[in-house]
Nucleic acid binder design. Sequence first.
DNA 1: CTTGACCCTCCTGTCACTGGAACCTTTATA
DNA 2: TATAAAGGTTCCAGTGACAGGAGGGTCAAG
Lengths: 129, 129
Amino acid sequence: MNIGEVSTHTGLPVKTIRYYEDIDLIKPLRDDNGYRRFRDQDIHKLKFLGRARALGFTIEDCRTLLALYEDETRASSDVKRVARDHLVQIDAKIADLRGMRDTLSHLVEACAGDDRPDCPILKDLGGKP
Amino acid sequence: MNIGEVSTHTGLPVKTIRYYEDIDLIKPLRDDNGYRRFRDQDIHKLKFLGRARALGFTIEDCRTLLALYEDETRASSDVKRVARDHLVQIDAKIADLRGMRDTLSHLVEACAGDDRPDCPILKDLGGKP
DNA sequence: CTTGACCCTCCTGTCACTGGAACCTTTATA
DNA sequence: TATAAAGGTTCCAGTGACAGGAGGGTCAAG
């Protein structure tokens, strides 16, 4: 399979697939014309990567997870640790965003949003006291 | 005030303050020795920026908000639009993260996390069916 | 034989900083 | 007074995970 077909097949942009080869996540073969030739295992890895990225794992996490995936002698505890750590990060981010959201939604509600200059949002940002 | 003092005063790293000057968010004066000299208005702006950034506004949003802040003839609707748009972005991100969180927490719970290789997390990433 | 759809590499840009090198100025201490 | 520490300066490179684009080669169809 050529890269375009792989792209439609995996849902990953061509650029991304090339990038993943660049950072050694996949190692497709090459045809005589220089075109990448993807085997089933390459495509399988790409789908794996797509799903892992969709869950928000970093590229380095993905590298680790792929290695564990391919290692038949892995301990599931190793996988679980990576996932649990990531879950903690996600929760932290959500908490962060919720804090912003709460403050901001109060401010937005308090703002008249008309043609007058008076604005509680700016008042808050300016240090309202 | 010199940059170090401003940094402790505003809570912004020195590097960040210099960066904000670089992209023309602030325009401190210069002493004869080349040191930046910050006026009260500069410090006020920096605090404004710190609070806006803490609410997750992009630098470009901050630029817009600062301009509105300084424009006595602004319409609060303009401020509100920026804030509401940002709120939408935040909500989208939260929804995204919650999706990841839900999937991931199920997987983590399902994983034994022992020394055996069997792992539902990897099974899912590998396309379990 | 040409056209258009692919494919290639290489370089740059994104966002909001952060780190570091190499250097100058001020302040405190011996 | 010499010097060392602490502060300031500029400029360049790197971060993460790609995306955009230039400039070119290759392939299948009409």
